[in-house]
């Protein structure tokens, strides 16, 4: 049965996160507001993309966080498997819904941007395809968490899945690159030169939006982990009650 020291670390986490959470949330709101308002109202139109260039202030930060959330889950899973640190497993669990939403935002804003620019909502471009695959990995991960009742078993199995999934997600990224360059390359799709330097007028608000999304992720992660810790404690208490 759970001894009290088992909650010592979560307690420390609750203390620290409770103190951090309001600040991080406010900072996240400020950064997102700055970046998005600046981007939306005070940037000019791109000579090629017109006003659709404004979508970049949502698309890029969301895509960034979609990948970083998975990386964070990978690190948290490793820590859980090696150090058996409960907070770590619960943080990975809390990150998944945020990550899946970010992936969805990146996909949707990308599709909305692609419609006028590429003339199609969806193209099987390597980047788009890898994001769709990442989305599927998130779904599998979340589904596995929800399917298993025992919390420690669920944490163990999802961590193993996260490790194996990371390797295969990376492999898929390269596979998809190979697959598209191989035969289906449509020259019309490479309108956007990702490597081209972006004008400073666009870059500054973009940095704000990126920082804002990152802070938002941290805030939601802290809040979510707090919730999971409470839920876990509740489960432990209920089990103890049932056992008398």
């Amino acid at each position: 049965m759970a001894s009290i020291w088992r909650y010592a670390n979560p307690r420390k986490f609750m203390e620290t996160s409770g103190w951090l959470l309001p600040g991080v949330s406010i900072l996240a709101a400020l950064c997102i507001a700055t970046g998005v308002i600046w981007g939306f109202f005070f940037t000019g139109e791109d000579y090629r993309q017109g006003s659709t260039v404004k979508i970049v202030f949502l698309h890029v930060p969301a895509a960034l966080m979609a990948i970083n959330a998975w990386l964070m889950m990978l690190v948290a899973s490793l820590i859980w498997l090696i150090r058996r640190h409960h907070v770590s497993a619960l943080a990975a669990k809390a990150a998944a819904p945020v990550g899946v939403t970010m992936t969805l935002i990146a996909l949707i804003t990308g599709a909305v941007w692609g419609q006028p620019m590429w003339g199609t909502w969806w193209a099987w471009d390597p980047r788009l395809t890898s994001f769709l695959i990442l989305f599927l990995f998130y779904l599998g991960y979340i589904a596995l968490w929800q399917a298993i009742e025992d919390p420690d078993t669920a944490a163990d199995l999802t961590s193993v899945l996260c490790l194996v999934g990371s390797v295969f997600a990376l492999l898929s990224r390269y596979a998809v690159n190979f697959w598209n360059q191989g035969l289906h390359q449509g020259a019309s799709l490479s309108v956007v030169d990702e490597g081209a330097p972006m004008d400073i007028a666009y870059r500054l608000p973009l940095y704000f939006a990126m920082a804002g999304f990152a802070l938002l992720f941290i805030a939601l992660l802290l809040a979510g982990t707090r919730t999971e810790i409470r839920a876990r404690r509740m489960q432990a208490l209920l089990t103890r009650e049932r056992m008398g």
């Binding site: 659709t52 949502l58 935002i105």
Partner: peptide, 29 residues
């Protein structure tokens, strides 16, 4: 701001992102 011919797309992107983020935050809270 003047959004030109792509107003619908830009609006849609911002609206969809706003809705998804609001949903996520609401879910967490």
């Amino acid at each position: 701001p003047e959004l030109g011919p792509y107003a619908a797309e830009v609006g849609l992107a911002y609206a969809a992102t706003g809705a998804l983020l609001a949903g996520l935050i609401a879910y967490v809270l």
